[in-house]
Amino acid sequence: MLRFLEVFAKGSQIHVPVGSPLIRKIPIFVDEHDVTAGAMKLIKVLRPAWDTSDVKTKLFTDGTTNKLVGCYVEDSPEDVVLVRVYGHKTELIVDRDNELKSFQVLHANGCAPRLYCTFLNGICYEFMQGDALGTQDVRDPSLRRLIAGEMARIHAIHAHNGCIPKPNLWIKMRRYFSLVATEFTDQASNVRIQQEVPSKAVLEQEMAWMKEHLSTLGSPVVLCHNDLLCKNIIHNEKDGHVRFIDYEYSSYNYQAFDIGNHFNEFAGMAELDYGLYPSREMQMDWLRVYLQAYKLFSQKGEEVSARELETLYVQVNKFALASHFFWGFWALIQAKYSTIDFDFLGYAVLRFNRYFETKPAAMALQIPQ
């Protein structure tokens, strides 16, 4: 109880709307090496009318945190149940309780699919119709506007029951750092970490500097997605909207972090290309649409001044630095524990390198007086 009060006092807790349905819990464990067999056990409970011999499955392979399979029958192909099995040791990097609360809050506000149940090592939820975007799609002018508007809608959601929300960026980054710090000892077994990743002292120094500098930029603390990579954006062309999926990292955070993180994701993930990072002109177009929508959703008018726009541009490009560090630490943890076939260590190195490359230009930016 004391721990709960401590978290509550910090204001980082997401509050589920009163009257939200209770989440169904099914006591089934799904083997991550045989997801389909476990998924069938869940389908028997969630869709008892389905004949399991008729159930089709589709394995999604884009994820770098979890295993995901879709289940459906040919008679109703629009009703796809997604079964997501949490990756090995992901409880170290993901607050599962917070994820479920985010899911509920976003669904109550029309921004997320239905959550059908939790099971012992995962969740089942509704499939969102549409196409996952790629690095070229997020640059498309019409899609950019839809994405900016949807992010504004989420940022304007009140999910804190009156208390002042606090960002969890620094707490989470510090926790990630403490998890990887053991790999930085002189006896650490991983030679690549020793040779390619900045030293523990340098990383700690940069973290302290970022917290001191970025905390003073005046970026509002809002409900953030925090992981808006291309594949987490679903475009429903028929209905003319985009929705965001995967809320594992959702929390209260700085508005500018969520946007800066999304801009970093323009580069992709499997084959990073920072030549795709949006130009100032592209960012200004995106940010103008975002600010108009955010002010509208927050009932603060719709007019956007040149000063507001420039301020957000500066905040976003400075907070993009923190995004590199956050996912750099995340990738180092994944390199140690994940069973997914991906060069997490190489990815961490690229993110830390990008931080040091872009820091001078980002620091030269000044918020207009």
Rank of each mutant, 00 (worst) to 15 (best):
A112P: 05
K101N: 09
K295H: 07
T358S: 13
D97F: 08
I333C: 06
E212F: 05
L146E: 06
G122N: 04
P165E: 12
D227M: 00
P17T: 09
K25P: 01
W286Q: 05
E150Q: 09
L229V: 04
T311V: 02
V85Q: 01
Q13Y: 10
L312P: 01
R351E: 09
K89C: 09
K172V: 15
T36E: 11
Y247M: 07
V191R: 12
F344D: 04
P141H: 02
T65R: 00
S53G: 05
G275W: 03
I154E: 06
G134L: 08
L143R: 13
T182Q: 10
S219P: 07
A270V: 13
E310D: 14
H158F: 08
S298H: 00
S250L: 05
K359V: 05
Y337H: 15
A306C: 08
T182P: 14
N261I: 01
V242S: 01
R144M: 13
Q13R: 10
R174P: 03
A132K: 15
T36V: 11
S250P: 08
P17V: 10
H158R: 15
T65H: 00
I43H: 02
A148W: 03
H225L: 01
A293H: 14
I157E: 13
N190V: 01
K58N: 13
M1H: 07
D75H: 08
F325H: 08
G130Y: 11
V304G: 13
L203R: 01
V222H: 06
R354N: 09
R192G: 11
W209C: 03
I26A: 04
V289G: 02
F127M: 14
H225S: 07
A108R: 12
C124W: 09
S250T: 10
W50K: 14
T311W: 08
T182H: 15
N168V: 13
R175T: 06
F184H: 14
S338N: 11
A9G: 15
G268K: 13
L22N: 10
V221A: 03
V304H: 12
L46H: 05
E78P: 02
R114I: 12
Q255R: 15
T339H: 11
H155W: 04
K56H: 07
Y347V: 10
G38E: 02
V316K: 09
M128F: 10
C230V: 10
A112M: 06
Q136P: 00
N121C: 10
E91P: 05
V80L: 07
I147T: 03
G87L: 04
C224A: 11
C163I: 14
D186V: 12
L365N: 04
P48I: 12
P165W: 06
S142N: 06
R24K: 13
P77Y: 01
K238Q: 15
Y249T: 00
M207T: 09
